[in-house]
Amino acid sequence: MTDATSRITVNGRELECRAAAHLSLLRWLRDHVGALEVKYGCGEGVCGACAVLIDGQAVNSCLVLAAQIDGRAVTTSAGLGSPSGGLGRLQQAFLDRGAAQCGFCTGGMLVTAAEFAGAGEALDRRSIRDALHGNLCRCTGYQAIVDAVDDVLRDQGSSSPPAGGWT
């Protein structure tokens, strides 16, 4: 088949995806869903600007075909807000710490952090760096980003994530 139809949930909205088979999840999200917070940065799976969560796991949306994820749930960084519509906790920590400069890597950073923060493990700063190492940033030297994630993990302590997750 050259065209595939699948149902994909994006940030809680179930959508029908009728896209050409070769369309990456990245292009489908940007061109068909309007999820422009998902960025193209390299197409190689190296930079992480296109990261989204699929069923809670961070993936390179440039290295997944939209056709491959029938029935699954995608969360982009825009889906990490608080239930009341404001910034979620990770997002707020990024704001407080000045972790977004040019902002191009920010969405991917947030979803990657959301995955491991959601696991509720207490991580030291080196472990945070380890978990984030697949997301490249050229502006911050990662300092404010690691600070922000560190803040959230400290607030959380070693207890499990709140109901409703980390966002």
Binding site: G45, G48, Q57, A58, N60, L63, E115, F116
Partner: peptide, 9 residues
């Protein structure tokens, strides 16, 4: 191997 996202897929 790679990074978190590569290992997830």
């Amino acid at each position: 191997v790679g990074n978190l996202r590569v290992r997830n897929r």
